[in-house]
């Protein structure tokens, strides 16, 4: 469970990149975070994961505040950042082992997990090469594997579909569904409306740092009384 309470953030003075954001993502829920470029999605995710400190408000991960109790909070997060170019000089297997050490995953479990995840994403055979030699999508996949090794309660992804081929994208969506089904939380940002439509239990739409809508897609359609496509709806909501 992720609780975002009245959070604001400005990178530069007098320009709030996030303005009094309130959100609650419950256990067992897939939550899609939508919004145009520069809306504040990455900023929000950076605050949830502890990369940025909020100027005001607080964020709780399973009841642990990311500011006052960061280690406990971070333990229950698996995070996939928007750029997968990490540790390029490590081999895939070294990276995964390192992540397992960081998240304290016992040997037997990590062995099974690494095998399962990398085989599913078809990067098992590349584990012995440096990440540098991976394609963008492969890098995305190894980062996802690293984030899932510890079976985190809360899975947070920043634009995870970018660069994935249709099959991998499908697999990822299935994994998100499974994750939520077992009572865990998935929070991800995306630009792809169809993904949100097919996958999410609820969506939040953010524009210029403000949350302009939160609810199910059905609610969204109802609220805006628009019979047009999802795309038109989105454009209407995020317009001035």
């Amino acid at each position: 469970m992720i609780e975002i309470k009245n959070v604001s953030k400005s990178y530069v003075k007098n320009k709030k990149s996030i303005d009094s954001l309130n959100l609650e993502i419950k256990d067992g829920e897939i939550f899609g975070f939508l919004g145009p470029n520069g809306a504040g999605k990455t900023t929000t995710i950076r605050m949830i994961t502890g990369i940025l400190n909020a100027d005001e408000g607080d964020i709780l991960i399973d009841g642990n505040s990311i500011t006052t109790n960061p280690l406990e909070a971070k333990k229950s997060i698996g995070f996939v950042p928007d750029s997968p170019d990490m540790f390029l000089r490590l081999k895939g297997i070294e990276y995964l082992n390192f992540m397992a050490d960081v998240y304290d995953v016992p040997v037997e479990k990590r062995k099974a997990k690494i095998e399962e995840l990398t085989k599913k994403f078809e990067i098992y055979d590349d584990l012995n090469s440096q990440i540098q030699s991976y394609s963008h999508g492969m890098r995305q996949k190894i980062v996802i594997c690293g984030a899932l090794l510890s079976e985190p309660k809360n899975w947070i992804l920043d634009e995870p579909m970018t660069g994935l081929d249709p099959k991998s994208s499908f697999d990822l969506k299935e994994m998100m569904k499974e994750h939520a089904k077992s009572g865990k939380t998935v929070f991800f940002s995306t630009h792809v409306l169809e993904v949100a439509e097919k996958l999410c239990d609820r969506v939040g739409i953010v524009n210029k740092g403000k949350l302009v809508f939160v609810g199910t897609l059905a609610q969204m359609k109802e609220k805006f009384k628009d019979n047009g496509s999802l795309e038109e709806l989105f454009l209407e909501i995020t317009e001035e």
Binding site: N97, D101, I114
Partner: peptide
């Protein structure tokens, strides 16, 4: 290829692996 049974899984202490 990796050989999963050959020492590829070392549960080292965090300081060592970091």
């Amino acid at each position: 290829k990796v050989d999963l049974n050959k020492n590829n899984f070392n549960n080292s202490k965090l300081y060592k692996s970091y």
